[in-house]
């Protein structure tokens, strides 16, 4: 543990970090909506870039912070794409943010790739559960595609998490901004 005196209080750093992550989640969400739909994939199959942000927040701030970022992200979906899309985003987001934060903080079993995959899979399953509740259980027809795609996209976000963390970790240990 670092015993240096910080010139910014922990609370301010927390607020700043949450602000950056929340606004980035809006930008990522908009960016993803610009990408063309992926062939043979069910509606709403996305890369899940926002998961990188909730995973980072979960790691550095904790579960409440990660849930806050998820709420902002889903609130934006509510406003721009309607109640159905918002509910699906919320369910997937909350489930995956709980799973990834617990894996990141409480377990040493999985690497970033696995944590990302777990996040992608749980996100898809949460969404699917809501889709099934809104329509009928027949929606589970999409399950195989969602499992495979959730894994692939999750692995990608896990990779991103690892490399972003290497850079962001410096920031959080104070080297990047407090060392001069």
């Amino acid at each position: 543990m670092d015993d240096r005196e910080y010139n910014i209080s922990g609370a301010s750093r927390k607020v700043a970090f949450l602000g950056i992550m929340s606004s980035l989640s809006l930008v990522f969400g908009y960016f993803e909506s610009l990408l063309p739909p992926i062939a043979f994939m069910p509606p709403g199959a996305k890369l899940g870039l926002g998961n990188i942000l909730t995973m980072l927040t979960g790691r550095y701030i904790g579960l409440p912070g990660a849930i806050f970022v998820t709420l902002v992200k889903s609130g934006f979906v509510f406003l721009t794409r309607g109640v159905t899309a918002g509910l699906m985003s919320l369910a997937g987001g909350v489930v995956s943010c709980i799973v990834t934060t617990l894996l990141l903080r409480k377990s040493v079993v999985f690497g970033c790739t696995g944590i990302g995959m777990a996040g992608g899979l749980s996100h898809n399953l949460g969404q699917l559960a809501v889709a099934a509740a809104l329509t009928s259980a027949g929606t589970f027809y999409y399950l195989p595609a969602l499992l495979v795609f959730g894994c692939a996209a999750g692995a990608a976000t896990g990779f991103a998490l690892y490399y972003i963390d290497r850079a962001a970790g410096r920031f959080f240990n104070g080297e990047a901004i407090y060392d001069r």
């Binding site: 999985f110 696995g114 595609a145 499992l147 690892y162 970790g169």
Partner: peptide
């Protein structure tokens, strides 16, 4: 802060479980 690892063997288990379920 615990150090993150890019990949662990147990990650394969998640992928395998998902593939099997699919």
């Amino acid at each position: 802060m615990k150090k993150l690892t890019l990949f662990k063997k147990s990650d394969l288990l998640i992928a395998l479980a998902a593939a099997a379920a699919a």
